[in-house]
Computed example of a mutant assay.
Amino acid sequence: MKKFKKKEYIICHLLTVGHISSFEAISKYRHTRLSTVIYELRTAGAAIRTVDEPHVGGTHARYHVIDKQTVLNTLTPKMLINVDTLMTAVNDPEY
């Protein structure tokens, strides 16, 4: 079985759901450095905005994809193949 990087799971989540918070990244993918992934994607040209969501005790950030194509344009060919494989698995119940 192929092993994917946590960053690829985060990117797949962003592309399929459209948004993610740090709590979701930690609980679903055990990824504790979501802000680093978002920073790297933005630096490479991805259109992602931050929305502060209030909760008891303060706020937390939720990252929303503005344009999915800009996210795809930031990926290396190998990462693009891996993300495409993950997207296929997400969208195909028999995968």
Rank of each mutant, 00 (worst) to 15 (best):
V51L: 05
G45P: 00
T74A: 11
R49Y: 15
S35V: 04
Y29R: 03
T76V: 12
T74R: 08
T36E: 10
M79D: 15
K78G: 13
S35Q: 12
Q69N: 07
Q69T: 02
V37G: 04
E53T: 02
T36C: 05
I66D: 14
S35K: 07
T59S: 15
Y63S: 09
D52V: 04
I66F: 08
A44L: 02
Y63R: 09
V51R: 04
I81G: 02
R62W: 00
L80P: 06
I38E: 01
L72S: 11
E40R: 04
G58D: 11
A61I: 03
Y63F: 15
L72V: 12
T43H: 13
S35I: 03
D67W: 12
H64F: 15
I66Y: 07
D67C: 12
L41V: 01
H60M: 01
R49A: 06
V37H: 04
A46F: 00
L41C: 02
L34H: 04
R42A: 10
L41G: 03
T50Q: 10
V51I: 00
L75V: 04
V51K: 07
V37K: 02
A47V: 02
L41R: 00
G58T: 06
H60L: 05
E40C: 06
N73P: 02
I38G: 03
K78H: 14
R33A: 09
T32D: 05
L75C: 05
E40A: 07
A46V: 00
K68D: 05
V56F: 11
D52E: 14
A61Q: 13
A47P: 01
V37S: 08
R30A: 06
D67V: 04
V56P: 07
T70I: 10
K68N: 11
L41E: 02
I66K: 13
T43D: 14
R33D: 09
R30T: 00
I48Y: 01
Y63M: 08
H31I: 00
T70G: 14
T50W: 09
Y63D: 13
K78A: 14
I66P: 03
